[in-house]
């Protein structure tokens, strides 16, 4: 379909050729025309349009799973009948579908950036409260875009691999490193580590032995935490080992053994129970979205 081939086909044309540019422009115009056309779609047609698009997108993966796919297929092998032809087509389309999904997701990623720009530009233009912070945000975004792109661009030449060594860096490489490694990564780490303070405060204020459930939760958490503390579990286990004197039953009372038993017997099984429950829910929701029965999915 859209596979890259050296011989020109309906779907592909030689690099930088007039034929390719013509097809690109025509396809873009058709795409934009459809977009404009959809703007005038009647209200009652909207829901079916979204439902059809959603259904056919999901149909590919359902068919790939359910349809017999040929194994040990040789290069240039012709399909043996229509069933195998569909199997070949499903297999060959995989890279295109995956690629399309990546591109579409990447284009939709931009939505978050667009939203951020919209809010902060509005705040600056209207000089709303704290508009200065919006200037800081946009300035940092611009700086990162400049240095990030310039750094990548500097690696595209023949010296690309050499830039893995900081001794060969130029201004833009230092700029990117300072912003990315020096600031962004450190701030990312700081942002996430702040939660430790809140979790400590929450544990201190909320962890009370008030009910059976709370007591079980607290007890398990305590055993898991203590078993993770090598100094405590080491001391405990050494004491048990010397007291057991080879008695395998007493050895079961080592802290690491108890923690392992809880982990393997109750923790894994209870999480598996949760996981099965969630899995059934996800499967049901997947089907509902695919068939546009879920209002948050394919409805309009």
């Amino acid at each position: 379909m859209l596979a890259q081939v050296e011989v020109p086909t309906f779907w592909s044309e030689p690099y930088n050729s007039p034929a390719l540019w013509t097809k690109l422009v025509v396809a873009l115009l058709i795409g934009l025309a459809v977009l404009v056309g959809l703007m005038y779609a009647p209200v009652r047609a909207r829901r079916p349009i979204v439902a059809v698009v959603t259904f056919f997108s999901g149909l590919y993966w359902v068919m790939l799973y359910a349809w017999p796919i040929p194994i040990n297929r040789q290069d240039n092998q012709l399909p043996n009948g229509p069933v195998e032809a569909v199997g070949f087509w499903l297999k060959d389309s995989n890279s295109v579908i995956v690629s399309f999904t990546q591109i579409l997701t990447a284009l939709l990623f931009g939505l978050g950036i667009y939203s951020l720009l919209r809010i902060h530009l509005q705040r600056i233009v209207k000089t709303q409260r704290d508009w200065g912070f919006s200037v800081v945000l946009l300035a940092c975004m611009s700086l990162m875009v400049f240095f990030g792109y310039a750094d990548w661009n500097s690696r595209l030449g023949e010296r690309g691999a050499m830039l893995d060594n900081p001794a060969n860096w130029g201004f833009v490489n230092f700029g990117r490193d300072f912003l990315f490694e020096g600031l962004l990564q450190q701030m990312d780490a700081a942002m996430f580590s702040v939660i430790a303070f809140y979790i400590l405060s929450a544990a201190y204020r909320a962890f009370r032995v008030r009910s059976v459930e709370a007591t079980i939760l607290l007890g398990t958490a305590l055993i898991v935490i203590l078993s993770l503390m090598g100094a405590v579990s080491g001391l405990w286990d050494d004491t048990i080992r010397s007291a057991a004197n080879g008695n395998t039953f007493i050895l079961n009372f080592q802290l690491t053994t108890i923690a392992d038993w809880i982990r393997n017997t109750f923790q894994t099984s209870s999480l598996r129970g949760i996981s099965f429950g969630v899995g059934i829910g996800l499967l049901a929701m997947g089907l509902r979205i695919w068939l546009s029965l879920e209002r948050t999915g394919g409805s309009a």
Partner: peptide
């Protein structure tokens, strides 16, 4: 819808 469709279609597998 396309992204959700592609996601939900994978759920059986």
């Amino acid at each position: 819808g396309i992204i959700l469709g592609l996601y939900s279609g994978q759920q059986i597998q």
